[in-house]
Write a protein that binds this DNA or RNA. Structure first.
Lengths: 155, 155
DNA sequence: CCTATCTCGGACTAAATAGATCCGCAATCT
DNA sequence: AGATTGCGGATCTATTTAGTCCGAGATAGG
């Protein structure tokens, strides 16, 4: 069970975009230089965030990315699932219905106990991430950080 | 983020072994037939569970696998991490210290806020799985299931 | 006590999936 | 009109996963 490397990238990029002034945008190239990341691949990930509705993109000169919503309305879960996909890590293939020990159909009406417990754990994970917004993240960084980020990122 | 397919296999196999009478063992071939799984590959996974201390293996005729501890002392987390490894899904590579926006060392004494939140979510997931034992699973299946399992699996 | 058989154990090979990159197209602002 | 930027597809590589094989060790029966 592993999240893509790009998860760290987009989380930091989203946090950086949350520090911009309303209306400003940052291009993929600017963000890549800011964190020293491979620009083409980062662009592809930001693209995924746009398609997920987390970021908004504007093309042309002086274009780039910005948050699609206020930072308080964007959760870490939305960002993570935008790059990793919404698929559950545990997939029940109903092996209890196969082989010599196959259970009769009437015993398989409700979902497998094991699948249910695994789903519970995944829900706990999702709830934890859904409880943290980008605004919460900004609250935990030094107060002078946004100004520094804007200066270095855009300049 | 995806768990191996074999996760479902070993969870069900462990639940089946928990239904055996004390002292009995089931071979990899028996378990594979019971669930219609590729026998050699399943053996590899059971091997991993043995190395993790969840199962105990005995070789020779009439040998096979059994639980290494009482079912109440084996959690789903131990089983899952035995096949998937203990690695955390989110790996912080400290990209905040790279590129043009690299933060000064003194600002990076404590772990990155984002890494902390991701770790919190993973802890929630682990706690959820650690709260369920094989004994809890057996409590949720029909009372006559263990006898049926023993008959079909060993017979 | 010896032998035959049955078991796990680890090394090895192939397939699939994800990671990473490149190039051409459409849209926008100067 | 030209330059700049995001968008989507096609491509290539690497890592992980899936699957197979043969050998070492132990037990049961003669």
């Amino acid at each position: 069970m592993k999240l893509p490397t790009s998860t760290e990238w987009v989380l930091h990029c989203a946090a950086s975009l949350a520090q911009l002034q309303s209306g400003d945008t940052a291009s993929a190239a600017q963000l890549a230089a800011y964190y020293d990341l491979p620009a083409p691949y980062l662009a592809k990930q930001l693209q995924a965030l746009t398609k997920a509705g987390v970021l908004a993109a504007s093309t042309g000169p002086r274009g780039g990315f910005r948050l699609a919503r206020p930072a308080a309305e964007i959760t870490l879960l939305q960002i993570v699932e935008a790059v990793d996909g919404p698929a559950r890590p545990y997939e029940c293939r109903e092996i209890r219905q196969q082989g010599r020990g196959a259970l009769p159909r009437e015993d398989c009406q409700d979902t497998c106990v094991l699948a249910r417990k695994m789903a519970d754990a995944h829900d706990a994970w999702r709830r934890s991430l859904a409880g943290v917004s980008l605004a919460d993240i900004l609250d935990e960084i030094p107060a002078d950080a946004p100004a520094r980020t804007r200066r270095i990122l855009m300049g």
